[in-house]
Nucleic acid binder design. Structure first.
Lengths: 199, 199
DNA sequence: ATCGCGACTGATACTGAGTGTCAGATTAGA
DNA sequence: TCTAATCTGACACTCAGTATCAGTCGCGAT
């Protein structure tokens, strides 16, 4: 899941990648994502454009690769749970794991979420990643559920809704500069389904 | 809403746009979205590359511009409803309007959904459009609702969930070649929230 | 120690999306 | 019919992303 680097090669690659991303991230925040070119980035980082492009397939990935493990975190969390809970509780807990994974440095996450929010291309690519996670998450949610429901529409809808909640909550949280309690925000968001649909 | 063309200029522009899209759509289905270039399209349509690009800002829009009115359709439908219903019912009905707008020619819609599904770039751009509609839809949903809820998290989650349902239902529907009943599909999807979360 | 293999790097060339500009043709409307 | 706005094609340009190639470096085996 967390891509444990085993050879020295892997260690090096991982470290270089992190450093390139760090340099690039500063540029993005300073000048704006769209204004910065790969030529700028490679110059700033002191490597060739070719090399920079080899570490990140696209400009979006320079920012968003940190979210790659989230899908795995959610599926793992879903597996680890006691199965005798309803779907919403299990998803709520899984999202808790995702949030724990993401929130290491509050300030950094707030900054990155801000950059994403004001850059349509980044939003789009992030949604794409999210959509990639969904099938696997749906499978894990259904595995233990004894529902013999042939069509997975319900599970799909629930997972999609849960993932939307994740970003809505993160958006709200970053808008408050990381002040609000993310756990409470998640609870408030899930209340949209349990509350009897306010008149 | 539906961009009623008023001058002859507008009529012409609208017609040309439709014809270019028609020609392009055939190419896309035949060869695959990514394989077709603007040069191919403009040649096939008998106009210059410049002109083609003036009608559609991006290659994605050549396919997806037909979905542009959907946001408006949903907000209009939301306005037109009696306010004494719960959020889910109102959203369910609004989605019914969206579906009615989209399903004119069953075969055509099935084809276009198929093309979108197998082209990540199109999925991404469609999700982006969807995200653009959300704020306005949330506003309409909250306007009549007497909830003095300062934070709009709940409304946001419900709208996001409803929009996800729309695409999930359409996906399922197009997978059945337009055989299944879209209304029943929507109902089944909304059941994900009313059903007491199957064990 | 060194040899060979695989991976990393920088250089270069290329395709294709999308932007901007400009002169000439076309058309709406007075 | 005249004029002003718009449409068109041509051209030049920037930049993302792909592909190739020769040279370099590190690692493990001999």
């Amino acid at each position: 899941m967390s891509a444990a680097p085993v050879g020295t090669r892997e260690i090096s690659r991982h470290a270089v990648r992190a450093e390139l991303a760090r340099v690039a991230f500063n540029r993005f925040c300073l000048t704006g994502f769209n204004q910065v070119t790969f030529a700028d980035l490679s110059e700033a980082a002191g490597v060739s454009r070719s090399t920079f492009l080899r570490y990140f397939g696209t400009k979006e990935d320079v920012v968003l690769f940190v979210f790659d493990p989230v899908g795995g975190v959610i599926t793992d969390a879903l597996d680890a749970e006691r199965a005798n809970q309803d779907d919403w509780s299990r998803l709520r807990n899984a999202l808790e794991s995702a949030v724990r994974f993401l929130v290491r440095d509050v300030q950094e996450l707030v900054t990155i979420l801000g950059l994403i929010e004001q850059t349509p291309a980044l939003c789009a690519r992030l949604r794409e990643k999210q959509a990639e996670w969904r099938p696997e998450i749906v499978a894990r949610l259904q595995k233990t559920t004894s529902s013999t429901d042939g069509s997975s529409v319900i599970a799909n809808v629930r997972v999609a809704a849960a993932l939307e909640i994740l970003w809505i909550a993160l958006g709200q949280w970053s808008a408050s500069d990381g002040q609000e309690d993310l756990g409470k925000l998640l609870d408030a968001a899930f209340a949209a389904f349990s509350t009897p649909a306010c008149q």
